[in-house]
Amino acid sequence: MIENFLSYNFVQCGLAAGSLVAASCAVLGVFLVLKRLSLIGDGMSHVCLTGVAVALLTSTSPVYMSIPVVAVASLGIMKLTQKFRIYGDAAIGIVSAAGISVGLLITALCGGFNTELLSYLFGSILTVTWTEVALCAGLLVLVVGGILFFYRDITATCFDEPFAHTRGVCTERVNTALVLITSVAVVLSFKVVGIFLISALLIIPPVSALLVSHTFKQVLWRAVIFSVASVWLGVFVSFLIDIPSGAAIILVNLLCLAGCYVWLKWRNAHGR
């Protein structure tokens, strides 16, 4: 059955793109969760609605249209927190509300919800093209390369931003790079799990990994493994019992989180 499942071109495409964005989101998510910025993915995903609506209105590619829209929104969140001293969660809420309302307005102007828009809201991993797979591969190279090269600056900024500044680390640049790369990851993820569930890919695997890891490098590796495994298992289960793949991927992630929590409790109870 698995051979049959993997023989389809659209399944190969979907799994490749899903694995690549899952790995990118897991790595980025670790830093966002530790910086208490995990909901930024949620805010950005809501802004995707504006990007997708504009793309459908102008008959352009939703992915290419959403990347600049979400990037500008993510910079907006940063500016609101830095310049206007608004709390991060409030800034995310403001930008998120703006993203949804503008998106809904444009959708209404072009005749309301249609099947294509719904496929972006709930994900359609099996419609991913090989060009999009190449984009996802580029994203992963950028994320892993960037993290390895700037590992010390990024961990120092996430752990203690004022101190990192006194080491000469340009913390503002690190934060900007982190949210811009995350905005690209969010856009490339919306076909995999859908606009509504993107933030789960950024949050759940890192949180699961944090529960069962002792070192920072362990957290990064385990988050990637949990995330990629959830895509494969989720897509396979959705293929088996005909359910939406995005929802299946997130449910597998939630089961993984529950498993990590139970394991943590068991480990603590047995003093290991």
């Binding site: 208490r36 590992y151 600056d153 961990t155 080491r167 944090l210 002792h214 920072f216 362990q218 957290v219």
Partner: peptide, 23 residues
Amino acid sequence: SQTRFPISAEEVVLMGLPSRHGA
């Protein structure tokens, strides 16, 4: 913070050295 940052005391002290590239 409330989040358990999985970093050892040794790694924290290492952050005090001049920043450079690589892990």
